[in-house]
Amino acid sequence: MLEVNRVDQCFRTGFWMRKTQVLHDVTLSIPKKSVFGFLGANGAGKTTLIHLIVGLKRQTRGWVKIAGYEAHTPQAKARVGYLPERPYFYEHLTGQEFLFYVGALSGMDHSQVQAKIPQIFSRVGLSNANRLELRRYSKGMLQRIGLAQAILHDPEFLVLDEPMSGLDPVGRKEIRDLLVQLASEGKTIFFSSHIIPDVEAICDQVAMIEKGRLIGCGPIGQFLAMGKVQTEIAFKGVSLSEVEKFTDFESIRQIPDGIRAMVSSQEAVSRALALLLRARAQILWVTPVRPSLESFFEKEVSHG
């Protein structure tokens, strides 16, 4: 659906118009019907790349194609639904008027938009706010109306810049569910986020960007498999000094109920459990701790 090939992006800044490169040789591709998470710290170049994808900017080098069309062409834009990072809309319009406006810009006639409005508002959880002026919307509501305008014309490719920002935990869950639902309808979703657990929860592909360079891109499982799988064992009935003699434990922490210890390999888990049982310890739980995307991201950023 999306192909970004060897893209560089430069800006001229300051009085002397000095050239600043913000994207360096970025290449990625997103297959149809996938949910693609785009991670990066503030200023890493996420929004710049998104602006190239939705045709708001033209890259200095390389190309960006959507369904085979250059991203700035009307054919590509007609296939895209875009939610900006901080949704800035005309405050004097009501939610409904705003959708009529964006609908017209997408080639929808008045009756088509009218027919879709109740369904769209209910999907984004704004059923009672369609006649309210946007100036009266809260940040979370603006995020939702932003999402509503992005899906209004039923695009096959959604580009969402921080769709969960400004939402409370319930709102985040609702938007996450909506994205999952949209993905199940066959939409391709590309979204940037700071909130790594959100990306982990719904994405099947991820890319990470740092200082304008992609530091990782591929199926999410590939990143998670790269980390070390650990197991947490919690137990009681054995003193801390006794436990410290067990060499298999990588870290030990006392908790009100007893002791929590981490072991790294499957063999070490068996050995540690055998030793604990021999010492007449009472096992509270044994939980595998899989590596998170966050730990991978933190590691890459600190190395970079």
């Binding site: 834009k77 800035y88 005309y90 964006v102 810009l105």
Partner: peptide, 13 residues
């Protein structure tokens, strides 16, 4: 300045 143009220019116009 208000970035309201982003929504319009991301559409096929």
């Amino acid at each position: 300045e208000r970035r309201t143009i982003h929504i319009a220019l991301s559409r096929p116009i």
